[in-house]
Design a protein around this nucleic acid. Structure first.
Length: 583
DNA sequence: CTTTCTCTAAAGTGCACTGTGGCCAGTGC
């Protein structure tokens, strides 16, 4: 198979990393990183051009990179890269996944202690040998051990957004099979958990052995763990385990309910079934004793809930967090749906660190059927992200106002993702902010503040009348970094008091504020905005993850700002802050 | 390594934070 654009970019990135360890000229390493970005974003078939050696005139690809790209595209390999790679052991790359380790420290560990893997790093930290290196004090060692523990804890976990595409493609493949009557993904994927450790497929079929066999040979499968007559487990190239269970069409609703979990939800449901005189498991209802009524007919999963005198409970809510009580009382809310979204806030353009222009982002939003798009590029403190100074911001505002003349059914809102500085003040003065339609205030630095100060910092930002919403409340990066210490309840109360939205950042790396807080916050009256934090047109699709997590947080259409129509949201943005939060 | 240029040599994102080591280096945004 021919080498892909992403493969080429990955090679360039890896070269940059290796040159960094070698202590090469930082501008050289940056040139390779820029090259990788250029390859990824090039508008046209850059692989074909590279193969034909026609790369002249592409900004960021000079003579040396042209030659390397040509070699890569035409032979699929690069001598320079292979030689460089051969200088270092394989495991060294894993070390860069540890927070606090950069090229210099990796180099020191490798050169002086021979540390070439996470395992070796752990040893060097615990046996005291790392403590002998310059720059490695007591606190550094402690932090490294913490980072290793964090990494181990996340070792076999995957982010929802990273596996959804492959899960859906496998689902589609299974549905194609002539012997599959019904196919669903159960488990935590169906419940829209933000991180998962496996995917559970379920198929109703008259020929279970054929289905498990077919499953274990899907193109996505890397290796087969087990393949029996009703169950198969496989591993994908990325390490993710996938299970398939094949059941009869009659058992399917029970199996779907059972394997969707959560375990806690099922325990509660089973005890409810017992009160009705049946035991409930993945195969069906079984009368408990002679006095029990006959087991009722079940055609689909919803029947199980109906028979137990419950509203149908959407899978996202099945965490035993009050959903059974709500279903009993007929109080399962009508959860928000993707179709309810009318627009979105918090999106970036090429003005700061986005990959697409204002015009391209707007077109993409229109193509998705949205009525409005909020632009929120970074503010000046985000230097590395090309954050805007007031002059550039105001130029952008003028450009947006001009662009808005070209539509009567669509509008761009002018905004900013303004940094909340260490003391809670903002990166723009009020006289700048008041010229915008809205603003998202976010924290991008000083992550280590103690909880009290961090909470006060956010509260101070929310008290500013020009702050429309708070971006990614805890700053967590799923499976990478814990959120900063913040008293979420205090912040929620302050948000309601001041009329400030807390966004549901639906970038799959964040999904922040966490779903576990939303039901409580909603009950108190808080509203959210489901924001993709898109840095490219295709990332507007992250809204789908936002909807999944909003549903998991019990949110309804009326809890979500960007479910408002264009007219409604225009009116809402003109209200003084204290009148914005609905009663 | 690439771009730019008083065009074959120089400049090329800046800052805060952290911890350590003795006032700076590395990391991350």
């Amino acid at each position: 198979m021919a080498i892909s654009r992403d493969d080429i970019a990955a090679v360039l990135d890896e070269i940059a990393l290796l040159l960094e360890i070698k202590g090469e000229n930082p501008f050289k390493t940056r040139a390779y990183r820029n090259g990788a970005e250029t390859v990824r974003n090039y508008d046209g078939d850059i692989v074909k051009k590279a193969a034909a050696n026609e790369l002249d005139g592409i900004k960021g690809i000079g003579k040396a990179l042209q030659e390397k790209l040509h070699e890569l595209a035409s032979t699929g390999e690069l001598k320079f890269h292979q030689n460089l790679r051969a200088e270092f052991p394989e495991g060294l790359f894993d070390l860069f996944g540890i927070q606090g380790l950069g090229p210099k420290k990796v180099r020191a560990l490798y050169d002086q202690l021979g540390v070439d893997s996470i395992e070796a790093l752990k040893t060097a930290c615990t046996d005291g040998s790392a403590a002998g290196l310059p720059g490695f004090g007591k606190k550094s060692i402690e932090k490294l051990l913490e980072a290793i523990a964090l990494k181990e804890q996340f070792a076999d976990l995957f982010r929802l957004g990273d596996i959804a595409p492959i899960a859906e493609s496998m689902l589609e493949n299974l549905r194609q099979h002539p012997d599959s009557l019904r196919v669903e993904i159960a488990g935590s994927y169906r419940r829209s958990k933000e991180v998962l450790h496996d995917i559970d497929f379920l198929v109703a079929t008259p020929k279970p052995a054929e289905m498990t066999e077919y499953f274990s040979q899907l193109p996505e499968v890397d290796s087969v763990i087990v393949c029996g007559s009703t169950k198969a487990s496989v591993r994908l190239a990325n390490g993710l385990q996938c299970d398939l269970r094949a059941v009869s069409n009659e058992q399917f609703p029970f199996a779907l309910q059972y394997f969707s979990g959560s375990k806690e939800h099922n325990v509660a449901l089973r005890s409810r079934a017992l009160k009705h005189g049946w035991s409930l498991n993945e195969y069906g209802f079984t009368p408990k004793d002679k006095t029990s009524p006959a087991a009722p007919a079940v055609k689909e999963e919803a029947d199980i809930y109906r028979i137990l005198e419950l509203d149908r409970i959407p899978p996202e809510l099945r965490e035993n967090r009050g959903e059974i009580e709500a279903a009993e009382a007929g109080e399962i809310p009508r959860l928000v749906e993707l179709e309810n979204l009318r627009g979105t806030f918090h999106n970036h353009t090429t003005a700061s660190d986005g990959k697409n222009t204002l015009e391209e982002m707007a077109e993409a939003a229109r193509d998705l059927g949205l009525q409005y798009l909020g632009i929120a590029d970074h503010s000046k403190s985000q230097f590395q992200a090309n954050g805007l100074y007031p002059d550039r911001l105001l130029k952008q505002v003028a450009a947006i106002q001009e662009l808005n003349q070209s539509w009567d059914d669509f509008q761009i809102f002018t905004g900013t993702e303004v940094d909340i500085l260490k003391d809670g003040s903002l990166d723009f003065e009020d006289d700048v902010l008041e010229q915008l339609d809205y603003s998202v205030a976010s924290i991008h630095g000083s992550f280590q503040l103690p909880e009290k100060e961090m909470t006060a910092r956010i509260i101070k930002a929310m008290e500013n009348p020009h702050v429309t919403m708070i971006g990614h409340l805890t700053g967590r990066l799923l499976l990478r970094r814990e959120g900063y210490a913040v008293d979420v309840d205090k912040v929620i109360d302050c948000a309601i008091r001041t009329g400030t939205i807390i966004e549901l950042n639906c970038n799959p790396r964040r999904l922040d504020m966490d779903w576990r807080h939303w039901q409580r916050a909603r009950d108190k009256g808080l509203m959210t905005s489901i924001n993709p934090d898109a840095h490219a047109t295709e990332q507007l699709q992250y809204l789908a993850y936002g909807i999944r997590l909003a549903r998991k947080g019990w949110l309804r259409r009326e809890d979500v700002l960007n479910c408002m129509t264009l007219d409604e949201v225009q009116r809402w943005l003109k209200l003084p802050k204290e009148q914005r939060m609905r009663a």
